Computed example of a mutant assay.
Amino acid sequence: MNISDRMRRRRMINRERRAIDRAWQSAPTQAMRDEINIMAQRRPF
């Protein structure tokens, strides 16, 4: 894996983490937040 691939992967991971964070903050209930947490933990970063 070269440097540009690593940088691209890091950007993608950061973008996914921000999206998960936005979804978690906008979730209307604690149950939805729990589901988002479970899905986020299963993500292969």
Rank of each mutant, 00 (worst) to 15 (best):
R22K: 04
R42S: 13
I38E: 09
M32Q: 11
S4G: 01
P44Y: 15
M39R: 13
I38M: 06
Q25M: 10
M32C: 01
T29V: 09
I20P: 01
A27W: 08
I3K: 05
A23I: 01
P28C: 04
A19G: 02
R18V: 14
M1R: 03
A23F: 02
R6C: 15
Q41Y: 12
R6V: 14
I13V: 13
N2M: 01
D34R: 07
R18Y: 01
N2Q: 05
M12S: 15
R11Y: 06
Q30Y: 01
I13A: 04
D21P: 00
R10P: 00
M39L: 15
F45D: 10
R15V: 00
A19D: 09
R42T: 06
Q30L: 07
Q25N: 13
I20R: 04
S26K: 02
R15E: 12
I38F: 03
E35L: 13
R15I: 07
P28H: 07
A31L: 04
I13L: 00
A40P: 08
A19H: 02
D21V: 03
I38P: 01
P28I: 07
R9P: 00
D34S: 05
N37F: 07
A40W: 04
E35H: 10
I38C: 04
Q25L: 13
P44S: 15
R18M: 13
A23R: 06
W24C: 12
S26F: 08
R10G: 02
R42Q: 14
I36W: 05
M1L: 07
M39V: 08
R43H: 09
R9Q: 05
D21I: 10
F45N: 15
D34Y: 00
N37E: 12
I20C: 04
R15L: 13
N14A: 07
R15H: 04
Q41E: 02
M12Q: 13
R18E: 15
I13R: 15
D5Y: 08
R43G: 00
P44G: 14
S26Y: 03
